[in-house]
């Protein structure tokens, strides 16, 4: 509906404009007129309502709980009414955090069903589905009717290649033109190959460490100073250099933003806390659990 585009984090897309009521309870989208799905069916507010009702992806329960009603005001105008003000609403329709804002065709889905749709999906985007082998390959071709910008490449072939060395080999042999997520040793290999180019991509995701035991008052992680010590102990710049050839951006540490301003004396006392925490865990023969998480964010 709305999506980040160069120069605008919330650019009009399928919705050409939108409003939020003063009380934060009503969001109204004016849909772009004249758009057609890849099979020629027109895009209307019916499709938006249908997509909302059918959505079962990330945070679907939360979205359905918070939205009181979806009203079709006109064929190209749709209104979402919330139970209570909810600033996160546009995260669903104006960001990449969920798939809720990708509108599916009501009429076609009612004809072919969910499984039929997965075998031959259609949408409103710049590329239409041609063929696919589940888990292996997917072929798309340019949609000449795309409203925003005519694609410059006629055919896209996506190959699912989870192993990084295989992606590198495909690039070197010319089997693939682009390989995603080339980091570490493979990134170095690309950098030293004059026939290949390593492109920096600032991904729409942030990665961080989470201390899941911090809410347990018996865990060493419950002590904020221990968490701070762990944060200080990580050389993020070196990790970025080693893993990403220095191409990632180091995020501001929200919780420990003042950590960098710590005096060396404070750092030493923090290190002592960490040492005590680790010793305690060693005696108890247990590990300090840490999780890594990622979340799509607006860039």
């Amino acid at each position: 509906m709305i999506k980040p585009l160069p120069g605008n984090n919330m650019a009009p897309c399928l919705a050409e404009s939108w409003t939020e009521s003063a009380d934060g309870l009503v969001y109204e989208f004016k849909l772009r007129e004249g758009l057609k799905f890849h099979n020629g069916d027109p895009f209307t507010a019916e499709d938006v309502k249908f997509t909302f009702e059918r959505y079962k992806g990330t945070s679907a329960k939360l979205l359905h709980e918070r939205v009181k009603a979806v009203e079709i005001v006109e064929p190209y105008r749709v209104r979402f009414v919330l139970h209570t003000p909810w600033p996160d609403f546009l995260t669903f329709y104006g960001s990449l955090a969920t798939g809720a804002g990708w509108i599916v065709p009501k009429k076609y889905l009612e004809q072919v069903g969910d499984d039929g749709f997965k075998q031959r999906p259609i949408g409103l985007g710049p590329y239409r589905f041609v063929s696919g082998t589940p888990g292996i390959e997917l072929t798309l071709e340019a949609n000449a009717q795309y409203w925003r910008k005519s694609p410059s490449i006629q055919r896209l072939v996506f190959k699912g290649v989870p192993e990084r060395p295989t992606r590198l080999a495909m690039l070197k042999t010319g089997e693939a033109d682009i390989g995603y997520l080339m980091i570490g040793d493979e990134a170095l290999a690309i950098k030293s190959d004059p026939k290949l180019r390593l492109a920096q991509v600032i991904s729409a995701a942030t990665w961080w460490l989470e201390f899941p035991e911090q809410w347990n008052d018996k865990s060493p992680w419950h002590d904020r100073r221990v968490r701070l010590a762990a944060s200080l102990a990580l050389d993020k710049k070196a990790i970025n250099e080693a893993e990403r050839l220095g191409l990632s951006r180091l995020a501001i540490q929200k919780q420990f933003s003042a950590a960098s301003a710590c005096s060396s004396q404070n750092r030493m006392s923090i290190s002592r806390y960490m040492a005590v925490a680790v010793t305690r865990c060693s005696r108890a023969s247990r590990r300090l659990p840490v999780l890594t998480w990622s979340l799509p964010t607006l860039r």
Binding site: A142, A144, S150, P151, S152, I153, Q154, R155, L156, V157, F158, K159, G160, V161, P162, R164, T166, R167, M170, L171, E175, A176, D177, I178, G179, Y180, L181
Partner: peptide
Amino acid sequence: PEGQLTIAFDA
């Protein structure tokens, strides 16, 4: 639009 682009996707 012209040509083909083959993408080795990481999943």
